[in-house]
Structure formats: structure tokens, C-alpha cells
Write a protein that binds this DNA or RNA. Sequence first.
DNA 1: TACTGTGAAGAACTTCACAGCA
DNA 2: TGCTGTGAAGTTCTTCACAGTA
Lengths: 206, 206
Amino acid sequence: MRKISESTVRRLSVYLRLLEEFERLGRATVSSDEMAQRGHTTPAQLRKDLSFFGSFGKRGLGYDVAELSDRLREILGLGRTYRVTVVGAGKIGSALVQYREFGERGFHIVSVYDNDEAKVGRSWDRVDVRHVRHLESDLRVDPVDIAVLAIPPQVAQQTMDLLVGAGVKAVLNFAPVRLSHPDDVTVQNVNMALELETLSYALRNG
Amino acid sequence: MRKISESTVRRLSVYLRLLEEFERLGRATVSSDEMAQRGHTTPAQLRKDLSFFGSFGKRGLGYDVAELSDRLREILGLGRTYRVTVVGAGKIGSALVQYREFGERGFHIVSVYDNDEAKVGRSWDRVDVRHVRHLESDLRVDPVDIAVLAIPPQVAQQTMDLLVGAGVKAVLNFAPVRLSHPDDVTVQNVNMALELETLSYALRNG
DNA sequence: TACTGTGAAGAACTTCACAGCA
DNA sequence: TGCTGTGAAGTTCTTCACAGTA
């Protein structure tokens, strides 16, 4: 399959959320126009995005809501559950643990690590916080699909290297540094300082 | 000035962080090659990004670290402080309050709101949580520059409308919905479910 | 000489516009 | 008729390559 751009993938997630909304409202079909309007995009964009993966609509009618959401879940790899570990038991980590949509989408947090002995042993929503020194050996016994890095930037790269060594292929990084990693590992960065600076730029420059 | 793309602005933030790192190491000058390497971009990209705002380097020498970081801070609007309000006193809100880089960059959280009476009155790092019913009138007396929305998606749009009505021009939105807003209001979205779905897509499709 | 600054070329992404099908 | 699917056109973003200068 042709290489799909990240922006297309992100829009697919948005479409899926819209479809689920339409599903709740009991709608059976929906047109690209209608979805585009609700999703702040254009009908052509939506149809083009979908066309990379097949033709899911009916001309003159639109898309079957249930069918298209099934297909999107499949395309996005949401037809299964994922084992997720959270490294760093600070506020961000704990925000993730309680984040509803996480579990609903099949992302199960199976372990939490920290290097602070004061936090080790506490229970977090049925998961015990373990010392990060056990991370590597734990992963060899019980691998995870995704690791969330919610730790200070100074230790982020070394932890990344450890995760890569242990075979982790997907990382969600909250540390405000860009991490080096092999090509076969996917990293998504969430950097709140960056978002704020985009806002301050906008405030300053109209 | 020509319209600057959001990706350029985001890279400027990254460059600034790199320069501050070089400053700490005591480096006086740095080349676009060196910075590009550390910032996972290309020298040409960096020079092009900077060229939209002026010529800050010396041919044959590179960039003066201190001077370029000053210029970048100015371009990004970081030469002042910003008053920030956080709406939603859940885990995400509290993660923001304790997030170091926030305050260091001049983003001062001056108020926190929630609709849960159990949370109202509690003190958060010297800021008292107030009931969200006071939000609108408080803003009229004491405006803020930026609002952070860390509330459930169901109430995000109505809160957005209230903020817009009260004259807020910049919003950082953590609710997993795309919000409607006038053109003169800038909204940055942080959607963790979306990041995870990008990862699950990558895991599924090599 | 070693590097920047920048037009021009190239690649990626978005929008247009219409043929084709239910 | 109404709406999809898609090449082609248009736009934006990135990379190239080299002239220019400290």
C-alpha cells in the first residue's frame, strides 16, 4: 500500500469519532458533506483520505455508518487490545491512568514504573507502581505493545534506549525532548510547552 | 510578513530549546548543521525557517547562540509573561500546574475552575479552585491571555463559547473534540486518544 | 575557507471538477 | 438525481544547490 501521511491517519481517527457520534444518534448513513462539516474538514479531503484504503461508500447515498466505523477501526488497528506500560508515576502518568477514552479504545495499562521509592508499591487503579529498575526484566517476561514516557527529559533518552532494547515498537513521549530511535520504532510526541509557544506566537502575531 | 506555517513555528520552539542547551554548555556559536543534527531536522530547513524572519547568522561562522535565542524568544512572543487560567481541576489540570517548563517560560497560572463543589476551595499551588460559575465574571474583572480546557468533551463547546465571549484569544484544549471558534481565536488541541491511535495504526501497518 | 541566505526544483498535500454508479 | 471516487490542477512545504560574504 502507498505510504499514508500522518495527517491522513489523524483525520481517520477524527472521522471514527464522528461516526460513533452519528451511531449514537441512530443514523444509518451519512454523506461526506455532513461528516466534513462536523469534522471541520472538506468533503473532498474526507473522500480522498478514505480512497487510499478502498471504496466504502454508495454513490448517491453516502456511507453506511456502522460499516464505515468498523472499517476505520480495522484500518487504525483498533480491532484488538494493546498492553501499555506507563513509565513515570507523576501527574501526567496518573492523568493517563484515569483517562476514560484510553480503556474504552482497548489500550490497557498493565504496569506503572517510577524511580521514586516513595511511590513504589502504591496502587494505581489496581496496578502497583514498581521500581523502574525492574522495567527491563519485566518486559522480557511480559512484553508490552506501547510504552508511555512521562518522565523528566534528562532520563528520557536512556529509558527510550532501554525500551528499544526490550523490543518495544511504539512510544508515546511526554518528555520535552526529541528522542533518537530506530526506524522500526514509532514515537509520538506530546509537548505541552510547544503548544503553549504556538499560542504565544499567535497572540503576538495576530 | 508572509504567513508562517505552524510547522515552522513549532520548529522555532525546538530550535530555541536546543540553543538554550548549547548556552548551558557554554557554546558561543553554532552552525545550522550542528543544530539540525541535534534537532532531527535538516540544515536547509533550519536556515529557511529562520530566513522568514531575517538573517541572524554570520557566513563562515554560524549563529551567535545568545543572540539567536533572544531573537527566537522575541519572535515566539516569549519576551513577556502570560496569564493563564485552567478550567477543569482534574488530573490533567493538576499535571499542568506542576509542569516546570510552564512557569519557566512565563506562563503563569492565575486561576483554576471546576464545577465539582468537592474540589472548590482547595488550594492548588497557591491558587484556589473556584466554581466555574464565577469564570465569566472573574474574566471581566481580571482577564487572562490563555485558557486551558481540561474538562469533559460534553461541556467543552459551551465553555469555549463563554471564554470567547469574555474575550479570550488563545485556548489550549485537552478535550477530545474539535471546537468551533471565531478566526481571531487560536486553539491548540492536545488529544491523547489521537496520538495512541496513530501508534496503533503504525503497529498494525509496519 | 566555512558557512549562511535564498531562488528554483522537487515532493507532499489539498482542492477541484467531473465521470460514473446506485 | 445525488453523492462517491479519483485523476489533474493547484497550493504549500521541503530540499537542493550555489552565489555571496565574514
